[in-house]
Amino acid sequence: MIAIRKWKITKDDLVARTVLFPTVALTMVFVYAFIIFTIYISFTNSKLMPSFGWVGLQNYIKLFKLDHWHIALKNMLIFSILYIGLSTIFGLLMAILIDLNKFSETFFRPIYLYPMAISFIVTGTAWKWFLDPGIGIERIMQQWGFTSFHFTWIKDSEFAIYTIVIAAIWQVSGYIMVIFLAGLRAIPHETIESAVVDGASVFTLYTKIVIPQLSAAFLSVFVILGHMAIKSYDLVVALTSGGPGRATELPSTFMYSYTFTRNQMGIGAASAVFMLAIFGIIIIPYLRHQIKADVE
């Protein structure tokens, strides 16, 4: 490491700081200054545009009185657990399968990966059609003779959120697969060989030897899925626009609608601050742990 402790700052240190500076400065302004701004707005009576009449905690109190917000939080919980969990499982499974069967990689990898290249403005309509009982999978299965086949989740307040999970997993799991695939390729082969020689079954080999060595890949996966879960806005808008009723509202759509279409910017900001705080509580210890572990 260049951690040779130096007493004085050399020219190189100066250059290093200079090239780092723009990134840090821009992040400070465009991320942290704006977060502070949002926190401030959440304590004001801002409606259509930011304004500066201080109202204390009123926006937060109003926020938690809204049924709508409770639905959004509940959906966020369901959505992120299923989305992060299932995408990770799918991605890992696909990576293992592809890794076991290399000649098929060129064929299957692009198929699994392509959804990440397209935005939901594009694929939203296709998914909406496919999930719609009147024209989509239900009707097709019935036309094929499976008359008792029913798939009406997207029309059902209770289940609509799960259809969003289905489409979201579709989009991202190929990408997750690639990250895991890269991780698998980087595992030193001797460890696997010796485990096989010791007579480990395929299952133990993966659970005991291979997966524990993927912890670095898990960090990337977690960062990517976490950021996509919190930003999954296009998806909801394209598939259900928050419906049926308000059943598939997520904090991201909630925040957007209060800030920009309901002219209650104060409440919108309060919801954003609350989400950032929750998120910070979850992710900061994790990031710290990972970065620390990395340095050692």
Binding site: D67, G243, G245, R246, A247, T261, N263
Partner: peptide
């Protein structure tokens, strides 16, 4: 009515219409 009220009314109407 202004946007905030309009949307609040819509929330109730649509939730009721969808059986919530």
């Amino acid at each position: 009515a202004p946007a905030a009220v309009k949307n609040a009314v819509m929330d109730v109407v649509t939730s009721h219409f969808n059986g919530q």
